[in-house]
Nucleic acid binder design. Structure first.
Length: 239
DNA sequence: CGCCTTTGACCTGCGC
DNA sequence: GCGCAGGTCAAAGGCG
């Protein structure tokens, strides 16, 4: 377990150890899935199934992954969250091409997020201005090609402390749901990971957090948290 | 002052 | 083509 933590310091969610409340359902989301648009229909996910396996109750993390085909698949209970397994699972769901596409996307969006098809030659100034706003041409590109996966978290707190810093860039009322969906972006300048946070309409005690993309930088919080532990391990290993 | 949230406007994609 | 729903931008304002 320690080895894992050490090895992939830029894995999204290495922050898990610091989580006060574990997400116990993880749902890798096929980027091409869904109700035709961007991402899963949260309601379609439905409330989490009952935990009928050891450790599933009382806060011990239980992960359920499912593909877009809605074939649920149990992962072993992991403490803390084994994000790497999750990601791998996620990538298995996605075609391998995704990695390249994501790299390209990251390159583009990292620097000039407004990389609307270079040039924009739309002519009218107004049009240009409009394009500069809103989602014109940019990420509007077809379906998302980045790995996505969602967590269902039973918590009063909407914000899942995953160790990364997020900036909220939007909030939207969602149909058939009293609770709005919030949009966050990783604040790291080279990182283009996004996440959506929304409460399930059917069970408002459950928060669904959908991650899109993979962090390309270490998690500061995690490193902070791990440093003393690693030092301690080093110290102990001397004996 | 820098970072973050809020919020209205605008965009895209999809279904009818 | 139109309307709807979802996603994003960016100005404005708040906070430490």
């Amino acid at each position: 377990m320690e080895i894992n933590l050490q090895g992939d310091d830029h894995d999204e969610a290495q922050a898990a150890p610091t989580l006060p409340h574990f997400p116990y359902f993880a749902v890798p989301v096929d980027s091409t899935m869904s109700d035709g648009q961007h991402g899963p229909t949260l309601d379609a996910l439905g409330p989490p199934p009952p935990c009928n396996h050891p450790g599933g109750l009382d806060g011990t993390p239980q992960l359920t992954t499912t593909t877009s085909a809605a074939v649920p698949m149990m992962l072993p209970a992991m403490t803390p969250l084994d994000w790497q397994s999750l990601l791998q699972t996620c990538l298995q769901v996605q075609p391998p091409v995704l990695e390249q596409q994501q790299a390209a996307a990251d390159q583009c969006s990292g620097e000039n997020d407004h990389g609307d098809q270079a040039g924009e030659s739309s002519g009218a100034v107004n049009k240009e201005k409009q394009l500069a706003k809103g989602g014109a041409g940019r990420s509007g590109k077809k379906k998302a090609t980045r790995p996505r996966f969602a967590f269902q978290t039973k918590s009063d707190n909407d914000i899942l402390d995953d160790g990364y810093r997020w900036r909220k860039y939007g909030q939207k009322a969602v149909k058939n749901s009293k609770h709005p969906r919030s949009y966050y972006r990783c604040t790291h300048h080279t990182c283009n990971v996004k996440k959506q946070v929304q409460r399930l309409a059917k069970d408002t005690s459950i928060v669904v957090t959908t991650y899109e993309g993979v962090h390309n930088h270490p998690c500061e919080k995690l490193m902070e948290a791990l440093t003393p532990i690693l030092k301690q391990l080093q110290f102990l290993s001397q004996f």
